[in-house]
């Protein structure tokens, strides 16, 4: 008897396509309960050995994966499954539920242990803003857009850039 790859408790009755650690699609055995939690209706009635029904389920999952989208970068979960790479830091929040079984399989854990980011966060964000403005300013100067350059210089001053360049 194959056990469910998500909960590890129930018997797996379904195969679902998922990502492995190399970013390739691989089959995952899932129990009816976990499949329902992922929002798939009527899956209990499906026989796992039926090719046609599996294909239908697959396309249903694919369609559903396309609808899970990161609001910040626009990447869909389906896109992530194809490419194996996330679009931005926010994707981890957007795909939180979907990533859990993947992380568990890759790492055997879903909670970080170890070094944390402690200091300098706010300062770092300010620095990034300063950096953005510096790049803009350089571009403006190169393009001889002095009006814009002057405005950017003011913003840089306000953003606390001591160099004033």
């Amino acid at each position: 008897m194959k056990m469910c790859d998500i909960c590890g408790k129930n018997e797996a009755t379904l195969k679902v396509r998922q990502m492995d650690k190399e970013g390739r699609a691989t089959e995952l055995n899932v129990c009816a309960e976990c499949a329902r939690q992922r929002g798939l209706s009527g899956v209990e009635e499906i026989k796992s050995d039926s090719g046609a029904v599996l294909a239908e389920l697959r396309s249903k999952i694919e369609k559903q994966d396309k609808e899970i989208v990161c609001v910040r970068c626009g990447m869909s979960f389906a896109e992530f499954k194809r490419a194996g790479r996330l679009g931005c830091a926010e994707c981890y929040r957007a795909f939180h539920q979907q990533l859990q079984p993947i992380l568990r399989r890759l790492h055997g854990a879903v909670q970080h242990v170890g070094r944390t980011v402690q200091q300098g966060r706010k300062r770092a964000q300010e620095r990034l803003e300063v950096q953005r403005l510096r790049v803009e300013l350089e571009k403006a100067i190169k393009a001889e857009d002095y009006e814009r350059a002057a405005a950017l210089r003011d913003r840089l001053k306000k953003a606390g850039d001591e160099t004033g360049t």
Partner: peptide
Amino acid sequence: LEGQLSYAFSPELGFLTACPTNVGT
């Protein structure tokens, strides 16, 4: 670098990376 840059980090998943294979430490 941490003092200078704003790292993508979550208390739950640690340092966030483009591929979930590297997330955490």
